[in-house]
């Protein structure tokens, strides 16, 4: 926390920038542009400073300077790959950047395949193998879930025309997909309204002090 004067200046600046951004709802204007550009610039600057002084310096430079064993030299490999990535700026050497990209893609694919199977596919399939025993709400709920999963999967089966039984199941699948879209849209609306509430609360409470 800063001094009271800094806090007041910060609050007024935040208030001005909030109103500048919201003014776009009326129409595009220089205040909106100013706030937008400031946001992009400050974000980029923050990232640069953070990565340089909290990551590159302690994890790469300091490690190289202080380590004595094999780790001192191992750290040069990611350092070199990182520098090679910058070769994309120059058309004649841009091809070099494929090496670190290939390294990243390889690592990502290797980790991703096992993680998706272990952490997503298998647990989700397991969670779909649920009991349908007796006439009660739990069984009904489980039945809806199973029908939803199966018919949605059938909708995405394109090796046969969607006619007959397959067509009927696919149509049921579409209903589940639409319900899912509806839920997502409802949640998205809630999120956007929440952001508006947050900003208005800031303006009314922190800036204007009209809320207790």
């Amino acid at each position: 926390m800063g001094s009271p004067v800094v806090m007041v200046i910060g609050t007024w600046l935040a208030g001005f920038l909030t109103l500048a951004i919201l003014s776009f709802l009326y129409k595009d204007n220089p205040f909106y542009k100013l706030a937008e550009h400031l946001y992009v610039g400050v974000s980029a600057g923050y990232w640069l400073i953070y990565v340089a002084f909290f990551d590159v310096e302690p994890m790469l430079i300091d490690t190289f300077m202080t380590e004595t064993g094999v780790e001192k030299w191992l750290i040069l490999i990611p350092g070199a790959l990182g520098l090679i990535m910058l070769s994309r700026w120059f058309p004649r050497t841009a091809w070099l950047s494929r090496w670190p990209i290939a390294f990243t893609v390889g690592i990502g694919a290797g980790l991703g395949i096992t993680a998706n199977l272990q952490g997503y596919v298998v647990p989700q399939v397991e969670a779909t193998l649920i009991p349908l025993s007796g006439w009660n709400l739990v069984s009904l709920s489980n039945l809806i879930l199973i029908v939803g999963v199966v018919t949605t999967l059938l909708y995405f089966y394109f090796s046969k025309p969607h006619k007959g039984v397959l067509g009927g199941a696919a149509r049921v699948g579409v209903v589940f997909i639409m319900i899912s879209f509806g839920a997502s849209f409802g949640y998205t609306l809630m999120a956007r309204i929440s952001l508006l509430i947050g900003r208005l609360y800031f303006l009314l409470h922190d800036l204007l002090h009209v809320l207790d």
Binding site: L111, A115, P123
Partner: peptide, 8 residues
């Protein structure tokens, strides 16, 4: 988090 910390 789920796929790497929970699953593994």
């Amino acid at each position: 988090w789920v796929r790497y910390a929970q699953a593994r």
